[in-house]
């Protein structure tokens, strides 16, 4: 029993160490030529543009649900006029980065793990190595950069969509006009509310891409290995987002 636990702890520490080394090597590869611009463009398109609908819908409904809940609560002491400001802060600082990030872990992190994992078990990664191409530079760096650039952009658009969702809910769905909704949002917000959400998104993008690529490249054992590693990529990236969100929030408040 105890020894099983011990070996699990050991295995965990070992993979945590390997993951840190992988992350450091990936960072070093970012600034080392050659730069794979074609691959980067491809990933910007696949990760950024193609993910927009998912993030948009997620933020739209998050904004509406949050508005519904706070409106209901604030109405008990006639404080409905604070709803727009609270919505803005909650969405920009917390809801859009975290929920959007979790959706992206499911969409993008899993795709990376599955794609690179399949390439690993069918020896395409070895073939690349043989043709004097570093998979870290050719495969990992474009995915990493694309995610780190695109996630904040997507979340920034999600912020706007979520706020619009709140407006739509109150003014159209509930038919309880709240004049100057957007003015109230932007009067209440400070620039730092926005930037703290952007910093979070950037970190979450880093977590999604490094975990997804690491899990992909370390895949062993055929189709089954691809399956478990893909699942693990999503689980670990999501946990990473939720845990690091706590520490980032402590630093950014």
């Amino acid at each position: 029993m105890l020894s099983a636990l011990g070996s699990q702890v050991l295995a965990f520490t070992e993979s945590a160490g390997k993951f840190s080394i992988f992350t450091a090597r990936a960072m070093a590869a970012v600034v080392r030529p050659p730069f794979e611009l074609r691959e980067l463009m491809k990933q910007l398109e696949r990760i950024g543009v193609a993910s927009f609908p998912v993030v948009a819908v997620t933020c739209l409904f998050t904004g509406m649900v949050f508005t519904l809940q706070t409106y209901d609560g604030f109405a008990r002491f006639q404080a409905e006029s604070y709803v727009p400001g609270i919505l803005g802060v909650a969405l920009l600082r917390e809801l859009a980065p975290v929920i959007g990030g979790l959706m992206m872990a499911g969409r993008v992190g899993s795709a990376m793990a599955a794609e690179l994992g399949t390439m690993r078990v069918t020896r395409q990664i070895d073939a690349m190595e043989v043709m004097a191409t570093d998979p870290l530079q050719y495969l990992v760096v474009p995915r990493l950069l694309a995610t780190v650039v695109m996630l904040p952009l997507l979340i920034a658009m999600g912020d706007l969509i979520g706020i619009w969702g709140g407006w739509y809910l109150i003014n159209v769905v509930m038919d309880a006009p709240l004049p100057g909704f957007f003015d109230r949002v932007f009067e209440f917000l400070e620039p730092f509310d926005f930037w703290s959400g952007m910093i979070k998104s950037l970190f979450f993008g880093l977590i999604i891409a490094t975990v997804g690529c690491y899990k992909g490249l370390t895949t062993r054992g055929g189709a089954e290995g691809v399956g478990t590693n893909t699942t693990n990529a999503v689980v670990y990236a999501s946990l990473g987002i939720l845990v690091s969100d706590f520490f980032l929030t402590r630093m950014l408040t």
């Binding site: 069918t122 020896r123 395409q124 190595e129 043989v130 004097a132 191409t133």
Partner: peptide, 18 residues
């Protein structure tokens, strides 16, 4: 990587980029 540019290899699995 320099040394590998002097090699060519075909894999048992094919290993084509799909």
């Amino acid at each position: 990587y320099d040394l590998r540019t002097r090699f060519g290899m075909s894999f048992q699995e094919g290993a084509l980029f799909d």
